[in-house]
């Protein structure tokens, strides 16, 4: 598996560190009423068999956080973008 970093080009898998699902949403507040939303954010995952948006850190390269779309069944990389929007 190789990931094409927008800054560095195509690089080997061992330059990157995996964080996980990029689609989970951090709740806005620490209000008690958001307890379930926090459990959802911290623990529950869709875990799809197929395309999966996920966060990777290019630690042995440019240090950018990337949002990679990858097929979990074939390991094909479908898209790579910066995790921070507007970069």
């Amino acid at each position: 598996m190789r990931i094409t970093c927008p800054y560095c080009g195509e690089r080997a898998l061992d330059e990157f560190t995996y964080r996980g699902d990029a689609t989970v949403k951090r709740p806005d507040s620490l209000d008690e009423n958001t307890a379930e939303a926090w459990v959802d954010y911290v623990y529950l995952r869709d875990n799809p068999a197929g395309p999966h948006k996920e966060l990777w850190h290019h630690g042995a390269g440019c240090h950018a956080w990337l949002e990679v779309t990858r097929d979990t069944v074939t390991h094909e990389i479908l898209d790579v973008a910066f995790a921070r929007k507007g970069c």
């Binding site: 623990y43 529950l44 995952r45 869709d46 875990n47 799809p48 068999a49 979990t72």
Partner: peptide
């Protein structure tokens, strides 16, 4: 190993990654 995709058919989200 496949709990994610099987549980999904029952409408469940799990604290699991495959």
């Amino acid at each position: 190993g496949s709990s994610g995709r099987v549980a999904q058919m029952a409408g469940l989200r799990l604290p699991v990654e495959s």
